[in-house]
């Protein structure tokens, strides 16, 4: 249940104009490799040999060690800075993770909270794979809740490998709304 005060301002007509359109498209900068898998396992104290040992992975039918399924999101995050980008100033707004592209959709809202996420997996991730993502806004349900008037927005993210194979399809639901004042949750 996150409550953030960012998101592009606009009218509901502008929101509706984004329905069923691509609202985000990018590639993750780094291929799957053992070091990033190990660092992902570490804070979760997650010990499973198929993610760290090629022999263990092959013993159960994988061609190589396999990344945890939910790492698809991390490999699919666009870079926060790339060569050629301008330098950050101390007064700049912190860069937010770009996966909830719902915030790039204009809407007359100043608050939000994520309500639900689900992901269906198709292809495992192996070392050398690079992950791309295409996001579409697929649903808008206007609603007034106790926190204020707003809408449930749903984005569908399709994650693919460089080969074009679909790795996973995720749906993320966020309620964006207009809060008159103060912190709302």
């Amino acid at each position: 249940m996150s409550d953030v005060g960012w998101g592009l301002w606009g009218s509901w007509e502008e929101t509706e104009a984004c329905l069923n359109t691509v609202v985000g498209e990018w590639w993750g900068p780094d291929p799957v490799e053992p070091g990033s898998i190990r660092r992902w396992l570490e804070p979760k104290e997650f010990d499973c040999a198929i993610h760290t040992d090629v022999g263990a992975a092959r013993a159960v039918g994988f061609p190589d060690l396999v990344a945890p399924a939910s790492m698809v999101f991390s490999y699919g995050v666009a870079p926060y800075w790339s060569p050629g980008d301008s330098s950050k100033s101390i007064d700049d707004e912190p860069t937010q993770i770009q996966i909830p592209v719902i915030f790039n959709v204009p809407a007359p809202c100043n608050k939000s909270f994520a309500t639900s996420m689900e992901v269906e997996f198709n292809e495992p991730l192996y070392p050398g794979d690079v992950v791309g993502c295409v996001s579409r806004l697929i649903d808008i349900q206007r609603k007034t809740l106790k926190v204020g008037p707003g809408a449930f927005l749903r984005q569908e993210d399709t994650y693919t490998k460089q080969s074009g194979e679909v790795i996973a399809v995720a749906n993320l639901d966020i309620f964006r709304f207009y809060a008159e004042q103060g912190v709302t949750k």
Partner: peptide
């Protein structure tokens, strides 16, 4: 093999 994770709901 994981087929689906979710709905994951944050309460």
């Amino acid at each position: 093999r994981f087929k689906k994770i979710g709905p994951l709901k944050m309460l």
